[in-house]
Write a protein that binds this DNA or RNA. Structure first.
Lengths: 329, 329
DNA sequence: TTGAAAGCGCTAACAC
DNA sequence: GTGTTAGCGCTTTCAA
């Protein structure tokens, strides 16, 4: 059995209240001698506070709930790292749950994690433009907020909650412009899931910078394998002189690179490849990937900051990073 | 304010006890009519159970605590994915904290996360052979266990707790043997931190399969950058005819690949490279990396299984995966 | 089967 | 400063 605060108080010969004040350092001042006695007793008994009990008594917990699509995806694990760091800095503990890219699951998880009454809830999945009904999610989050919780979204605009917004459109447009000025002329887009807002914005932003529409667009999952198969199907159809492929995120670009390599298509000699996000591996694949950098860890940190009351920052405009996967033509 | 169970009971016109039984489905049976009324009332009020209060009343929580070195490292994020999946399957929620590879931090985190009285605690960092004093950690974990918690370690033998053991030595030895039979003769090892048990085992296992000792061993962090700098310093010293470099984990191997590429050393033509773990990107770098596969997600799942009482599995013997970074000579 | 009531471990008035 | 005590929201005897 774990010793309770009551045990500590008895051992120290003080009241429960004094022990509580000495250990968690409330605003009240405890005489040094007593505090010392309490601390010694706590150490002697191996006392560990019970945060559940504290949460019940205080009416608020010390945790942040984080919902991501897939923790093994470098995009989300980088965000998680930022959330973890920011939470740690303010003494909060982080509970993580994954949707596996299932929108319905997200609502369930909001309910599930909401049971912990976390101080903050960060949602980092992505919205679907054709979503059945975001109203249920909104209602659930409203309930959560009315109970004193704070919500922050990452990269999902259009919802009535604080959001760390990433300007996917202009980032992608900048990349498109860079590609054009490097001399590329025939573009192909690995566009991700058809109804995923982030994917659409990036795809559209990229296209908006081109003098001519992309010669082909292939949809696929927002994952490495999605990139691999989208690229493969494009290859099956014949590249038809395309000289540049834009994958709407880096993990898809990595998949595309693998597909290209498996087919023996030289990159960047025959075709250039670019991604989006600048996840850590982007610079370590061969050739190093041109991409659009989003400071993911900072985005994660910002999400807990705004949930905790910081001003919502202006939309983050990601920066084009040119690497050898897209040399000048 | 969040509605409480009391509110629900009142709304449904039943007692608190009945509402509790109807909602969490205790062993007691509640008359259908009452149950229905309670459920309707709960929905109407938007009732959400408060797990902290449940934990206090029940004396046990429904969470698992996971401690890893760095969630952005693919090795740990893969393990985390497994832990998350296994926890989800049994209705447990996961709290994650990172040590940033600081051994002292691990003890602090055990204390910190222990305050939640998690049902299970999984430690996935790595032990240092020269550790100041594992006794403190052990004592802390013993306390935790005596309070009813269950501990599981991943890949860290020698501690008196259930462990998902990875046979690093034999995996590395098998890789060494494979390298020899492929025709390689002059080996170099990127050995990781000097006192990290996992790194030492892998390094020693590999060397034990060679006819001659490695021509050089470079230590460095167990990270991508550690691999990059270890490889760089070896390059500075002159490779001296080495034809094979073994990095004790994949992320270091990826760093080594980058260092080699930056210096213009062709891989695998001039020198072959192999890693360990088979993290997802291993097969996506160029050339695809020969490695020793550890089923990381399964390891994560196994850790919660054994903590929950499953039999401790035999040490996992990882499997050599030959890819193009180590062609036959 | 249901309800009253005694806790669970802790905090925070409130009184001394 | 310190102690008493009434909760916090929920579970679980124990009677009825």
């Amino acid at each position: 059995m774990n010793p309770t605060l009551y045990d500590v108080a008895r051992e120290a010969g003080v009241s429960l209240a004094t022990a509580s004040r000495a250990i968690n350092g409330s605003s009240r001042v405890v005489k040094d001698e007593y505090r010392e006695r309490v601390l010694v007793a706590a150490r002697k008994l191996g006392y560990t506070a019970n945060v559940s009990a504290q949460a019940v008594a205080r009416g608020s917990s010390s945790s942040v709930a984080l919902i991501v699509s897939d923790i093994a995806d470098p995009y989300f694990s980088a965000i998680a790292a930022g959330v973890l760091r920011a939470a740690d800095a303010v003494g909060l503990v982080v509970t993580i749950a994954v949707t596996n890219r299932d929108a319905g699951r997200e609502l369930e998880l909001v309910k599930l994690l909401g049971r912990q009454r976390p101080r903050v809830m960060v949602l980092a999945g992505s919205r679907f433009t054709d979503e059945d009904d975001p109203r249920l999610l909104i209602a659930e989050l409203d309930d959560y907020q009315s109970g004193g919780g704070r919500v922050a979204f990452i990269s999902q605009t259009g919802l009535p909650f604080a959001t760390v917004e990433i300007d996917n459109t202009s980032g992608a447009r900048a990349l498109g412009a860079a590609a054009v000025s490097l001399g590329y002329r025939r573009f192909v887009v690995l566009a991700g899931p058809e109804h995923l807002a982030t994917a659409r914005d990036r795809s559209a932003g990229f296209a908006s910078a081109l003098p001519v529409p992309p010669v082909a667009i292939a949809h696929g999952d927002f994952t490495r394998d999605g990139g691999y198969s989208a690229m493969s199907s494009l290859l099956d159809d014949g590249l038809d002189g395309a000289d540049f492929v834009f994958a709407v995120n880096d993990v898809m670009a990595v998949g595309a690179l693998a597909a290209l390599r498996d087919r023996g298509v030289p990159v960047p000699e025959q075709i250039a490849v670019a991604g989006f996000d600048d996840v850590p591996i982007a610079s370590d694949v061969t050739p190093p990937l041109t991409t659009v950098r989003v400071a993911l860890e900072e985005v994660g940190e910002a999400s807990v900051a705004i949930a905790l009351g910081a001003d919502v920052p202006a939309p983050i405009t990601p920066e084009v990073i040119l690497r050898s996967s897209t040399p000048a033509r």
